[in-house]
Amino acid sequence: MNQLQLFLPCAAGVEDYLAPEVLRITGLPPGCITKQRGGVAVRTSLAQAMLLNLHSRLAQRVLVLLSYTEYRGEQDLYRAASEVAWERWFTPRESIKVEITAQHSPLASLNFAALKIKDAVCDRFRAVANGVRPDVNTQWPDVRIYAHLTTDSCSLYIDTSGEPLFKRGWREDKGDAPLKETLAAAMLAASGWLEGDADLLP
């Protein structure tokens, strides 16, 4: 786990602001980071992933890429998920939830695709943990697994954040139309305001 491929999803259009924030938090050189649609990819350590969870104001989550494969059908997704060493990341005593997103996927049902990935995770644990498998909890899972499908590729991630990052220090009160903290931070970044500028206000 010394070098991990992370993906930090963000709101559309925030990638240009998230990328320098990631570099500032991690101290990594620019060559370690890649802006993608809807987020930023960076190769770094698990310790840096925890720093990003703690300090990023713009990312929605910090995901670790565990598998990237091509697929044609649901059985390919099952095979890809079966080959991931999930046991390195959690135990069968922890509950899971599989969430799936897609861009132009040819599959008829994303719910069925998520079910096949869940089956693969559970079947792998049955094989390596003496028949014990994790339970599914769709409300408050211990572990969140994300799958992203394109027309022909499947990326499998494990979430290191738990709840969305905008819920850190979750507000005690809110107005009629509350603004997500990550989006508010993006608006400040887009304005050019920097920490410490408050000292210059009248």
Rank of each mutant, 00 (worst) to 15 (best):
N2A: 15
Q3M: 15
Q3C: 14
L4E: 10
L8E: 05
P9S: 07
A11I: 08
V14W: 01
E15R: 04
E15A: 01
D16L: 12
Y17M: 03
L18H: 06
P20N: 04
P20M: 05
L23E: 02
I25F: 10
T26M: 05
L28V: 06
P30R: 07
P30C: 04
P30I: 06
G31F: 14
T34V: 14
R37K: 14
R43N: 11
S45F: 07
A47G: 12
M50W: 13
L51Q: 14
L54Q: 14
L54T: 10
S56E: 03
L58A: 00
A59H: 00
A59Y: 00
A59Q: 00
R61T: 05
L63M: 03
V64P: 03
L65C: 11
S67G: 07
Y71F: 07
G73K: 06
D76E: 03
A80C: 06
A80H: 00
A81S: 07
A81C: 06
S82V: 02
V84R: 06
W86C: 04
R88G: 09
F90K: 01
P92E: 03
P92V: 04
E94Y: 07
K97Q: 10
H104N: 11
H104I: 10
S105C: 11
S105P: 01
P106M: 07
P106Y: 06
S109C: 07
S109G: 04
F112L: 15
I117G: 02
D119H: 11
D119L: 14
D123E: 15
R126K: 15
V128G: 07
V132E: 13
V132Q: 10
R133I: 13
P134A: 01
V136D: 02
N137E: 04
Q139N: 11
Q139H: 10
P141T: 01
P141M: 02
V143T: 04
V143W: 03
A147I: 00
H148A: 11
H148D: 09
L149R: 04
S153W: 07
Y157N: 01
I158G: 00
D159H: 10
T160M: 12
G162I: 05
E163K: 13
E163H: 12
F166Y: 12
F166M: 07
K167R: 15
K167P: 10
R168V: 01
W170I: 11
D173M: 15
G175S: 05
D176P: 13
E181S: 05
L183Q: 06
A185H: 03
A189F: 05
A189D: 09
A190M: 06
G192I: 09
W193R: 10
G196M: 06
A198Q: 15
A198N: 13
P202Y: 09
